[in-house]
Design a protein around this nucleic acid. Structure first.
Lengths: 341, 341
DNA sequence: CTGAAAGCGCTAACAA
DNA sequence: TTGTTAGCGCTTTCAG
């Protein structure tokens, strides 16, 4: 399927390229008859616009990039789908980059994408300093998801992480739990910090004293979840707890394994609330009660914000937007109610 | 971070754009001293090449597209990562498109990507006729994965699906099973057809008679797996079986649910071998014995083939390559050995 | 070794 | 309403 150019068409029709271009782009000032002749010829000579040439001229590539730490996580997959669905009608397409959770790769991609002159970026960064990305703030609009770097005035779409913790902890408290352990990611990341705040606030609200030893910190990986849980289990005599709330997916898995490794059962011996657990097949046993994020909504909101920024393009400054979405609980069988005490 | 152009640099240095361009691209015929001055200036004036302009001139965008039915399936995610890793050093980047398993979307993307003048395509199609995609055969190299359309001379990287079935069935036979049911996707797709052949061949080899009623066909979705399993279970009196082999991921999940719904247990009542089951967290109980595909190897092979085709670019015709990779078994606890009969 | 100039395919003043 | 022309930023003959 070779293709022809505007010039080819113009020659065949004895028109100028300008007229053909106008006809193609449905611009004004083209006689209806001429337009029809052009449209006809486009088909006949198998014309497909060269988006590259157009990009060069218009200084816009109609391309949005999405950088994520791991494309295999369904969480990001769903968000990407949501974005795609939202911006597709405007003819934007998406370049996906997978950083493997590495800062070096973030840099590499940022440079590469700028060279490709993307129109906008959606960024789930692992570099909370934002040191490198801020070089690009003036180059194209950027919307952050998942983690927000410690920078002023950034656009982002995230869930209310404090609220997520509040929901999880209240869920447990309502079922009679008062000694609640928690496993948290780095408080240097927003996802870690806010989730801890929510936990602490809720305990305070219910006048439950905080035992610092019941708060364990990991690095979001499964191993860390395992180790944190082990620590909790070892010190359980001195620092008893009836339930544990794990604030991210992989650490939840690790924690569960650690519990099983000790020969303990969920929820009989320990109740557990997880985070971001997606059990498509409902095959995990026992099924996990978990905090969930509305991925498709996140995707849609990101898409909408993107389009807004794209339209504002150099039409002056704007204030940054922080869009907070609601997390929700998905109930499984991993929490056992405690009757009184 | 505004950027400057070749022209800007040339002016600052009182050179011609040609010389600057040569220096940038490490071409010959540039005095070493001049080159150094240019390189210096690039930094100073924050020059970043405009890949769009270069693409237009060079008629190559350094971009490879990957079209998959569902980006959320880890299977595709891993392949994409593998491709990415393999072609990144050559400065290619990847555009990912998610068709939601819909032919219309395949068309839409194919058109869009051609407009963007991608250099090559990796395609996991759901349209086995290949009717539409073949229009693009002359436009850019295409490597098929997962499913192969019924067309002559296509490049593809897939596992040996017949062998996959052979491994699964032999695994069962070696453990004493002789009455083995099977749930298969559409035989109009290569993944369905070849997997059935492997099943049939293996039975023949072991001189086990084939009971056609033990072969059920679905459409790759979870529902279908459920229904197929129900059918098998209903007719179990007349068509007994001790094990079932399900030939794709989602249908495996469906089948398991159907078994549980009947109050039967795996593997006590029925042994099961699945396909493509990825249980990252090892939380599925019982763990499933499954056929697996080496996703990263697939990705790497695809990447290598891609580079090869890209290098051949209009250096004449080539023959198509069909790269067959080895599947492997991942052992779980879903198969119970039967002792004699 | 360097520069002038053409041109990749397209859009958009400006002129006619 | 249509055509002429410049130019987006770059690479690459071809002359010097």
């Amino acid at each position: 399927m070779g293709t022809s150019t505007v010039k080819d068409i113009a020659e065949k029709l004895n028109l100028s390229v300008a007229t053909v271009s106008r006809a193609i782009n449905n611009k004004e000032y083209v006689k209806e008859e001429t337009r029809q002749r052009v449209l006809q010829a486009l088909k006949e000579y198998n014309y497909v616009p060269n988006e590259i040439a157009r990009s060069l001229k218009l200084q816009s590539t109609k391309t949005v990039a999405v950088i994520v730490p791991d494309i295999c996580e369904a969480f990001f997959g769903k968000i990407i789908k949501g974005i795609e669905r939202t911006i597709a009608y405007r003819e934007y397409s998406i370049i996906v980059a997978d950083t493997d959770e590495k800062k070096e790769n973030e840099k590499r991609y940022l440079d590469m994408l700028f060279q490709k002159r993307i129109d906008a970026l959606v960024f789930a960064t692992v570099d909370l300093s934002g040191d490198y990305v801020k070089n690009y703030f003036s180059s194209f609009p950027i919307v952050f998801i998942d983690n927000i770097p410690e920078l002023e005035d950034v656009d982002c779409v995230v869930i209310d992480n404090a609220k997520a913790s509040r929901m999880a902890v209240e869920y447990l408290i309502e079922r009679g739990h008062r000694e609640i352990a928690v496993i948290i990611g780095s408080v240097k990341e927003t996802t870690g910090y806010a989730r801890r705040e929510g936990y602490l606030d809720t305990l305070k609200q219910y006048e439950i004293p905080v035992d610092p030893d019941l708060i364990q910190y990991g690095n979001y990986k499964e191993d860390a979840g395992y180790r944190c849980m082990e620590t909790l289990l070892k010190q359980r005599k001195e620092h008893p707890f009836t339930a544990v709330y794990v604030t991210c997916e992989m650490m939840t898995f690790g924690a569960i394994k650690a519990i099983h490794a000790r020969g303990l059962r969920i929820p009989e011996d320990i109740s557990l609330v997880g985070f971001d657990i997606q059990d498509r097949a409902k095959l995990i046993f026992p099924s996990i009660t978990t905090v969930r994020q509305p991925e498709s909504v996140i995707g849609r909101k990101v898409g909408e914000l993107l389009l807004k920024r794209l339209d504002e393009k150099d039409s002056g400054k704007h204030t940054s937007e922080k869009i907070l979405l609601e997390p929700y609980m998905e109930e499984g069988e991993s929490v056992k109610p405690i009757n009184g005490r």
